[in-house]
Design a protein around this nucleic acid. Structure first.
Ligand code: FES
Ligand code: FES
Lengths: 143, 143
DNA sequence: ATAAATAAAGACAAAAATATCTTATATTAT
DNA sequence: ATAATATAAGATATTTTTGTCTTTATTTAT
């Protein structure tokens, strides 16, 4: 559904958000440990998120990643778009060059409806909301 | 969403079904041309489908692939399961080792609902039905 | 029988995704 | 200033997916 990179990105951001109320910076090592991801691979993903302005970072001792307290909510869709690209969420389910109701593939109607629900879900859910779920102990990021 | 292999498989089967009323065998070359797929890669996929009993084949001149007229309907889910595997449709959206309501990831509720709708769609739609759409000119398999 | 057509099988290659390792650079604490 | 910490960047490796090529086996038509 999503690439591993994208899953790591979402989990990392949720973890960071869940600890960003107290202005602490979260180190890469800590992130990788808490979401059970390869550290250096995660680093690359974080760099993309950082460049896109989705997460902030500070170098040096006590440095790390953080999300501003007054930052606007980060939609899941923003993250998926940044990592997997938009084509991933608008392309034809059967791989036609473009998805259109004009020249649809055989599953266009059924597929595009579900894809639309997925898009809605990704638009309506924010990293901050999900971080609250995590903080409340209602969810986990690793097993 | 689905792998390329799986997309090719679905398209190939729909094409075959759309021409299987008249007991003709469809050659690999014809399939690849009509669904715009690499011929030998498609061959491998067809072999998997053939071994799983999803499609029938006959060698030699005038040989090719076909679907019995009185064959039971092929659910899209059967095809996805054969090519991409079942994990693809039951695994956690964020990559946790297993998806469970007991130890859910932060997007479990939202994700599993959509995944369920996808499963329902794949169960309710059959290759034969979609082939009819194609035959009626309501859909295409390539651009 | 022979030749032609075709699926089947397997070796090989290329590309993409994922993962690891190394070095550079910036920042803070001492 | 120096050392320690941590992000940033890039080179390299591994794995998976996708794609290509070659050979074999089977069947039909002649
Ligand atoms: S054309 Fe295939 S999903 Fe829209
Ligand atoms: S636990 Fe993640 S989707 Fe169910």
């Amino acid at each position: 559904m999503f690439s591993k990179a994208c899953k790591y990105a979402i989990k990392a951001l949720i973890y960071i958000a869940s600890r960003s109320n107290d202005a602490t910076r979260i180190s890469l090592r800590d992130i990788a440990a808490k979401i059970d991801s390869p550290e250096h691979f995660t680093a690359k993903i974080m760099q993309v998120l950082s460049k896109q302005g989705i997460v902030s970072s500070i170098k040096g001792p006590n440095g790390g990643f953080y999300i501003e307290n007054d930052a606007p909510p980060i939609k899941l869709l923003d993250v998926v778009r940044a990592i997997d690209g938009v084509q991933h969420l608008s392309g034809c389910g059967l791989g036609l060059k473009e998805c259109s109701a004009h020249q649809p593939c055989p599953i266009h109607n059924e597929f595009s409806e579900i894809r639309g629900q997925m898009l809605t879900m990704l638009r309506e859910n924010t990293i901050q909301q999900l971080a609250a779920e995590l903080s409340a102990g209602h969810a986990v990021l690793k097993h």
